[in-house]
């Protein structure tokens, strides 16, 4: 059971946003699980997870140990993923500027491309950093997050190359939102829905952005749009707490008493049946109490 849980944390990328007070327990569990009998796939997935957790916790020596174990198995001159991991390690543990980190990453990637082109020259077909090493390109983009203008340009350039990368569209929308460009943010989120039309968290997110804009401008059209998007997310997941909370809020603003009643009963049902995680239940109870 704990192995599946850890694999799920890795798969969903939860380690990047895990609540701080839970990092320690997940770390302990990963450490214990790594000592048990595991398949190669499970072992190296957990090692990658452990790498990120230890880096977050500031346990640099252990992080280096995880990285070394991964490097021993998969040659850094053959795997772009390890180039990325190495750059994360360098970013976290050294005081070098992000540009230096990015230069180091590109250097590793060039070496990888050079060696692989030597190996492949007899068969024809050559690698190119920009077109073939997408993970490296994405990481280079991510390392530009300090300067907003440059970051947006780089993200746009990357999304031209890779328009189906939902994670990057989401990042782009967050950047726009932080700078108050709500319409562009909504546009980016809608692009995700073209690729993943059932992504109910993204439907909810659009609703939230519309709701925020609605609070600012007091435009009832925005609340109507928010209601539509929240309703779709509730349709895709009947106990989705964010969807129902948003629906409750937008229904309140629109003065739709029937919908308010409906969302309240549904939220009560979620709380009493414990149909979502404990933290979400706390959140819902607080909002319902107000």
């Amino acid at each position: 059971m704990s192995l599946e849980r850890l694999l799920e944390i890795h798969r969903s990328g939860l380690y990047a946003t895990l609540p701080l007070h839970q990092i320690d327990s997940v770390y302990t569990l990963t450490k214990a699980t790594l000592l048990t009998q595991l398949s190669d796939f499970e072992r190296f997935t957990l090692l990658e997870l452990q790498f990120y957790l230890t880096l977050t916790m500031g346990l640099d020596i252990e992080a280096k140990h995880c990285l070394d174990l991964i490097c021993d198995r998969f040659d850094i001159t053959k795997s772009e993923r390890i180039c990325v991991l190495k750059s994360v390690y360098v970013e976290a543990t050294t005081g070098s500027t992000l540009r230096e980190v990015s230069d180091g990453l590109v250097k590793d990637a060039k070496e990888l491309v050079r060696l692989s082109n030597i190996a492949k020259s007899s068969m024809g077909g050559k690698l190119n950093i920009m077109q073939d090493l997408m993970a490296v390109t994405k990481r280079v983009v991510a390392l530009h997050h300090e300067d907003v203008k440059e970051y947006t340009e780089k993200l746009a350039l990357f999304l031209d190359l890779q328009p189906l990368d939902t994670e990057s569209w989401y990042e782009m929308s967050e950047v726009y939102l932080a700078n108050g460009n709500t319409d562009q943010a909504i546009h980016c989120l809608s692009e995700i829905l073209l690729t993943e039309p059932f992504a109910y968290n993204v439907w909810s997110r659009i609703g939230e952005v519309q709701l925020m804009t609605g609070f600012k401008t007091s435009d009832s059209q925005r609340f109507e749009e928010a209601k539509r998007h929240f309703a779709r997310s509730c349709e895709l997941c009947e106990t989705y707490h964010r969807g129902w909370l948003g629906l409750l809020e937008s229904a309140k603003r629109l003065g739709d008493k029937k919908l308010v009643e409906l969302s309240r009963t549904q939220l009560d049902k979620i709380v009493s049946g414990k149909l979502t995680s404990a933290e979400n239940i706390d959140k819902i109870s607080q909002i319902l109490a107000n």
């Binding site: 990328g13 995700i192 968290n201 993204v202």
Partner: peptide, 10 residues
């Protein structure tokens, strides 16, 4: 679809 929001790549 949690990965879209957690954005481990970024």
């Amino acid at each position: 679809y949690a990965q879209i929001e957690n954005r481990p790549g970024y």
